[in-house]
Every structure is written in C-alpha cells, then in structure tokens.
C-alpha cells in the first residue's frame, strides 16, 4: 500500500490555491480573446479588453485575478491503494487552504456561521467532495468559487415530461434573471438527473471542465450548444452592458434519474473560470 502524508497533500493544495487564483488557464484566456473577436458592442468590447488586461496584470504582479478568491471547493478521487498518514484528508486540505490563502495574500471570505457571521480568518473550512476509486493515485481538483456568481444558482425538480425543451427553457430563463450579477460572460454549469443533492454537485463539477470542452455524449454536446446559442441571444453581454457574448460556454453533467424525477441544477461561474487539477 502506498503512503502519502498530510504534509504532502497540504503542500500541493497550498500551491493549487495560489495558482488557481493568480493564473487563469490558457484555454480560459483563449475563450476571453475569442469573445473579444465576436463581440459587437463597444462597451462589451471594452469590458473584455479590461478582463484580458487584468489577467496579464494578475500574472505579472502575482495578484489574484479577482479579490473574491472564493470558497475553496475540492473534488478528490482517492485511490483505494493509498494510505494517508498523519491525519485526516479534511485536515490535510484545510491546512493547505490555510497556508495557500495566507501566503498568496488571498482574501479570506468564509464566516464560521451563516447567521452570526464571524470570519474564520483563514478561508477554511473547504468544501470537499470525495470519491474512492481504484488504484494508487490521488486526483485533486480545486476551484475557488466566488460568491457573486454562486448566489446566482438554482435547483428545480422538473417533470420527466418537460424533456429537453423544458430543461433548455429553465436554464436560459435562469441566466436571463441573473442578468449582470454573476459577472458575464459566464460559464453555465448544468446538472441533470440524480437527486436534489446530487444534481447540485453535478452542476458544480461541470464547472471544473476546461472551458468550452463539449460533453463526450453528442446528445448532451448538442444541448450545450443549443443552450449557449439561446443564452447569447439574450443580449446581456459582457458585464450586462449589452452585447453578443453573455456566456463563454455551457457545461452539462448528467446522472441516472428516478423514474418520477428530472432534477436540474444551474451553477454559474463568472468569466474567471478558475480551477486546477493535480494527480499525486
């Protein structure tokens, strides 16, 4: 059995927290550049120019792309042949978050209680989704999730009879209502299927995909394309100033469904689709 220490995990997590918040991925930068080419509205183009310049400044000055360095969300695929030494996975990840957010001068945006609202001071605890998988490797995916776009999220239990069109209408209508608030051009994460709780995790997980990478099933890839077209016809545009590019991409994740249900969740990401992945 392979052994990994809490310290090894914490060190890797600390680096991922800083990297994700400071350096936007190449594909995500390309998505903004190509949005600038397609955008027709003058204020929309100016927004995209500022966003591209912002990514460059963040990289150069080693500052976070956005001051909202997010709730730290992790998806961990833990190989069953790996034994963790020196503490729990939760302790390891939280220690990494603590270190990464302190050393990277990232904002601490977590309060310890939703109503009494005292800041925990170190951006912990993280939200951790864990899956046991075969093998002796550990895959850690991290996304800092900003509050502004997270607040523009929803879950609805549709009827199976609502079908593809019902889902598309629901998602497009939701993006329309969110309007300028989630910092468009957004990435729209859609979960379909499973239970009330499962579908929300699917929508979140879809946001960790490289921006614009289509669903492997052509049926869902087509649905992603159709939703994207409808969303970009809304006219919201960059930052809601009006324009052609309201979303950079739509990502769908699916899961088997109960015979009576068709759960749908929408989780929106702002234009800064920040995420990192490491295999240890």
């Amino acid at each position: 059995m392979r052994e990994l220490t809490v310290e090894e995990i914490a060190g890797q997590v600390a680096e991922m927290c800083q990297e994700a918040n400071i350096y936007l991925g190449e594909e995500e930068i390309k998505a903004l550049t190509s949005a600038l080419e397609r955008e027709e509205s003058a204020p929309g183009k100016e927004v995209l120019r500022q966003l591209i310049e912002n990514v460059r400044i963040a990289r150069e000055e080693k500052m976070p792309i956005c001051q909202d360095t997010g709730f730290a969300v992790f998806f961990v695929d833990w190989g069953q042949e790996v034994h963790l030494v020196g503490g729990t996975l939760e302790e390891a990840i939280n220690e990494g978050v603590r270190r990464g957010y302190r050393e990277g001068y990232l904002r601490k945006s977590v309060v310890e209680d939703p109503l009494r609202r005292v800041n925990t001071g170190d951006n912990t605890p993280a939200v951790i989704h864990t899956k046991l998988v075969p093998g002796d490797k550990v895959k850690i995916r991290f996304a800092p999730k900003g509050g502004g776009s997270e607040n523009m999220s929803t879950v609805k239990m549709l009827k199976p009879a609502d079908g593809v069109e019902g889902i598309i209408d629901f998602v497009v209508d939701h993006v329309k209502k969110a309007g300028p608030n989630p910092c468009p051009p957004v990435v729209v994460g859609v979960g379909i299927g499973g239970t009330f709780d499962k579908v929300a995790v699917l929508a979140k997980e879809s946001l960790l995909r490289t921006v614009g990478e289509p669903h492997p099933d052509p049926f869902y890839a087509d649905m992603e394309r159709r939703i994207l077209e409808r969303v970009n016809n809304l006219g919201i545009g960059p930052m809601g100033y009006g324009g052609r590019v309201t979303a950079l991409a739509v990502h769908i994740e699916v899961f088997p469904s109960h015979i009576a249900s068709m759960a749908v969740a929408v989780n929106i990401n702002c234009h800064a689709a920040r995420h990192r992945e490491r295999i240890i």
Binding site: L51, N54, K108, C183
Partner: peptide, 27 residues
C-alpha cells in the same frame, strides 16, 4: 459599475489606502 473581476487592474489605480473605520471587519 466597475468591471467585475478586473480586480488586479482596478487595484493598480489605487495609490494609497488606509482603514478609517471598523478594522475588525478585515476586508
């Protein structure tokens, strides 16, 4: 409105900053 998420760019326009009230609130 300022451009949401253009946070490093906007920070560059700040020449000086000081806390004038409620330092215990941090950010």
């Amino acid at each position: 409105a300022a451009v949401g998420g253009a946070a490093a760019l906007l920070a560059k326009t700040v020449a000086k900053s000081e806390v004038v009230a409620y330092p215990e609130l941090g950010a």
